[in-house]
Amino acid sequence: MTNMSNLLALKDIEKYYKQGEIQVHALRDVNLTLAEGEFAALVGPSGSGKTTLLNIIGGLDIASSGTISVNGTDLSSIPEQKLSQFRLFQIGFIFQAYNLVPVLSALENVELVMVLQGRSKKEREERAKHYLDIVGLADMMDRRPSALSGGQQQRVAVARALAAGPRIVLADEPTANLDSENATALLDIMFKLAKEEQTTFLFSTHDPRVMDVAHRIITLSDGMIKSDELHFQNK
């Protein structure tokens, strides 16, 4: 699929969960690799398993069977405590609902993960300011989320995800709540950063604009990968 080295490898992933009395087979025999610096989109109808797959890759959920390796770490065998550390140092999350901490300013939100990582105050301040500058919020660093628009909040979330220096950024419908202008601007920023910093991006999305910029489009249906295609855009 790609000539770059594999950062992520999923093998025979199955996921079952109970919804009331019914057992749902959310992922079926998922095999997937993702290379460093890839900008990939996970598409498919609602309920196809996109978010479940992202959660498993991000260590937020555990696969019922199969193996998952991220940057050489086998997630299926590590305890809960280590999973927190794995997420802290390896994964950047961008959520559909922005999910910023309301009592922290934009700058503090971006710094938060770096604080947990144990970076020095100087380093985290420099990095946070740098990424906020990239996402165009240099003059709004001291604002709290309630004083920012949806688009601005999502930019803070992008800055937060990237400033921590993750190997993979998992973005769950990041543009779903944004208007067209904000969505395009945000995608441009993410694409640029992925390219510059060789960070791997995996999006779950319905947004055709994301699909337009993605290197690779993985289509899920009923928990199975239906297609996995390289996609070359003009950017």
């Binding site: 991000g58 937020l60 809960e80 405590q81 927190s84 550390q85 997420r87 802290l88 140092f89 999350f93 959520f95 999910n99 901490v101 309301p102 938060l112 993960v113 947990l116 990582q117």
Partner: peptide
Amino acid sequence: TREFGLLRALGMSKRY
């Protein structure tokens, strides 16, 4: 609840 979920997702330990 949601915020705690976020903090845990971002890597904050239960202890913290």
